[in-house]
Design a protein around this nucleic acid. Structure first.
Length: 631
RNA sequence: GGGCCGGUAGCUCAAUUGGCAGAGCAGCAGACUCUUAAUCUGCGGGUUGCAGGUUCGAUUCCUGCCCGGCUCACCA
């Protein structure tokens, strides 16, 4: 796929762009037909928003939509070919007005099935889809039934996956294949059908690889060829046959048997342009996966990343645990939780915003190294970097402090990138990012001071960030809004977010945060206004948040009380007081350091994805049923 | 929440000052013995996101709403 040098096949948008470029080079169609598509596909070079939660570890993501199921209400009537069009027209008129039920064997069955399932889905595509194409596909299904072919057989004795066949034999020459006379038996979804009278070709996919199948009437049992004639784009089939190369050198299975495995009743997105509508890509990820191979690559890489993280930590003696997702006091981060209710206990429960306090309880219990990779839920805004539920790695390391964590983080990122990608050089948008340790370590206040000085053209003094009134005055000069509840520390962090964050492209540790915004972190021995905390930024995104853990129960109680005051002052995200957590600390927690890493964002980085929704299989979106009527 | 852009056939996209809503792919019928975006001939397919308004006439102009993208703000 010869895109430009800046195209990255790992990134769906790039692959699509390359496809488009290829087509335009071929002069197949005037460029203007793609204008809208390009517009829609284009992404910003960089996101300027970054999440930052004062205090707890905090990496929230963002979201969008989900799928909508197809309307199963169409009928399954087998329609004589000459009558099909008339039926389709009639059908469409009816479909707009009310849920349309056709009376027929298949139709009745589907109708019943639909009632058994959750909310009756009505997608925007549904009603019009009940037109020709669906009717035709249903008719083909009924025709198979009539031939005595089980339309949904229970199993298929597959000998090899398409991917396995391609890897084992795909490199062989035609002569080698002919000599070997290898017969195989595999299965997949039909992604293309090309017919030439007596020579017919299918392209099958197993999701990872594709293979061509050659079908001739005279080399198949009659029944199997009948099946072939009733196939539609998207159906699942099994084939058996010998491997060979066609005249055009295409690696191919010469089918001697064909079995029908499952019907695709709804038309799939077009093969050439693929699926570019991001809304459908997120709502109906299965369609994205079927037609855009690069979508699959993202999720495979995500899996390798998570595995690599796990192996890295386990190899260093960390114990993986799972702590409560539903908590009666949501803690560990400054974020608004989702609320639910337990009926039997008749109590409210909160979806966790972080596992932090539970993991540290385990450290109190003597698990010296512990980690969890799991979901957090935050009931807040969504953006290209924020999904309401997102995956977070948190780990705690006894007898270590935050400087140890910086070194460990460097090792972790480099190793994960090497394992999952095979390189420590990343391309992200226009940037090349080098994951080379050591990463620069910059003091938060120095970063802010430098940025503010540059912005204002004057020398900002360190004390300007220490005193509340001077910090507020500085913020005002910078055009940054400050609320009465914000102290010097919060103002400093606000300035950091506005002025500095987005420019931290190469991996950079920003450390030593104000105590005010870090209720769970340990102060520096010589500076109680500052805690031993850092955040790691890459590509302008907050990737990690870590600190030496506060283990003095009295100080922790004071911090919680400060949070309660903030809460009383209207800051909903402030921490609640978790008495049991303080009690745990009273039993004694060893010195320890802990860190949270946003897994989704890490995967974004490694896959050159610019929206968190590209790395989450099913990002949150409004219920399609709710909005169907208006679309 | 504000601003900008968008929503037209299953998919990707057109539609010139408001004047019969189109193309390619997909589908259907036919031709074709190695194609691969197969090709060729023919044919179907639309409540133009929803609801109002202006107009002889609205995809087009106006109002409201819904959905999406980007962005600013909020969350912080």
């Amino acid at each position: 796929m010869g895109g430009g040098p800046r195209l990255d096949a790992r990134r769906p948008a790039d692959l699509l762009a390359a496809r488009r470029a290829a087509r335009e080079r071929a002069g197949a169609r005037p460029a203007h037909v793609c204008r809208g598509a390009r517009h829609r596909r284009d992404r910003p070079r960089r996101q300027h928003r970054s999440d930052h939660r004062r205090g707890g570890r905090a990496l929230a993501p963002r979201a969008d939509e989900r799928d909508g199921s197809p309307d199963p209400a169409a009928g399954g009537v087998r329609v004589p070919a000459r009558a099909r069009h008339a039926v389709a027209r009639h059908h469409q008129r009816g479909a707009r007005a009310r849920p349309h039920v056709q009376h027929g064997r298949g139709g009745a069955v589907h109708q019943r099935a639909a009632r058994c399932h959750p909310p009756p889905p009505r997608t925007r595509m549904t009603t019009t889809q009940e037109s020709d194409q669906v009717l035709q596909r249903r008719a083909n299904l009924e025709e198979l039934r009539r031939l005595g072919v089980a339309p949904y057989p229970n199993r298929f004795d597959r000998q090899a996956s398409i991917d396995g066949i391609v890897r084992a034999h795909g490199g062989k020459t035609g002569e080698e294949l002919d000599a070997a006379r290898t017969t195989t038996r595999t299965a997949g979804r039909i992604l293309a059908i090309r017919s030439f009278g007596k020579a017919n070709f299918l392209v099958l996919s197993d999701g990872k690889a594709r293979i061509q199948v050659y079908i001739r009437e005279d080399s198949l049992p009659a029944r199997d060829f009948q099946i072939f004639k009733l196939l539609d784009f998207g159906d699942w089939v099994g084939v058996e046959g010998q491997l060979f190369r066609t005249k055009t050198k295409e690696f191919t299975i010469r089918a001697s048997r064909l079995e029908f495995l499952a019907k695709c009743l709804l038309p799939l997105p077009e093969k050439w342009h693929g699926l570019t509508d991001v809304e459908i890509r997120y709502r109906q990820r299965y369609l994205d996966l079927i037609v855009n191979p690069e979508a699959r690559q993202v999720f495979e890489l995500r899996s390798r990343v998570v595995t690599a993280i796990r192996e890295f930590l386990v190899g260093r003696g960390f114990l993986e645990v799972e702590t409560p997702m539903m908590q009666s006091i949501p803690g560990g981060a400054l974020a608004r939780p989702f609320v639910t209710h337990h009926n039997a206990l008749d109590i409210p429960l909160y979806m966790r915003v972080a596992p932090e306090l539970y993991l540290k309880r385990l450290v109190v219990g003597g698990i010296e190294r512990v980690f969890e990779i799991n979901r957090n839920f935050r009931n807040e805004g969504m953006s290209a970097q924020h999904n309401p539920e997102f995956t977070m790695l948190e780990f705690y390391w006894s007898y270590a402090d935050y400087t140890d964590l910086m070194s460990l983080t460097e090792d972790l990122l480099v190793e994960v990138a090497q394992t999952a990608l095979g390189t420590d050089e990343l391309r992200y948008g226009d940037h090349t990012i080098a994951l080379k340790k050591p990463f620069p370590r910059l003091l938060l206040r120095e970063v802010v001071r430098a940025a503010a000085s540059k912005r204002l053209g004057v020398d900002v003094a360190p004390d300007d960030l220490r005193a509340r009134d001077r910090a507020a005055a500085l913020a005002a000069r910078l055009g940054i809004e400050v609320t009465p509840g914000m102290g010097a520390g919060a103002i400093t962090v606000e300035m950091f977010e506005r002025l500095c964050e987005q420019d931290l492209v190469q991996p950079t540790f920003v450390h030593d945060f104000p105590t005010e915004v870090s209720p769970l972190s340990k102060q520096k021995p010589d500076d109680p206004e500052t805690v031993e905390r850092f955040e790691l930024y890459v590509a302008g995104m907050e990737i990690a948040n870590a600190f030496s853990e506060l283990n003095d129960p009295a100080e922790q109680r004071r911090r919680f009380e400060a949070q309660l005051r903030a809460r009383a002052a209207g800051q909903e995200e402030a921490h609640a007081l978790d008495e049991d957590y303080v009690r745990a600390l009273e039993y004694g927690m060893p010195p320890a350091a802990g860190e949270g890493i946003g897994v989704d964002r890490l995967v974004m980085l490694l896959t050159n994805s610019h929206s968190i929704r590209d790395v989450i299989c099913d990002p949150v979106s409004a219920d399609e049923a709710e909005v169907a009527g208006s679309r």
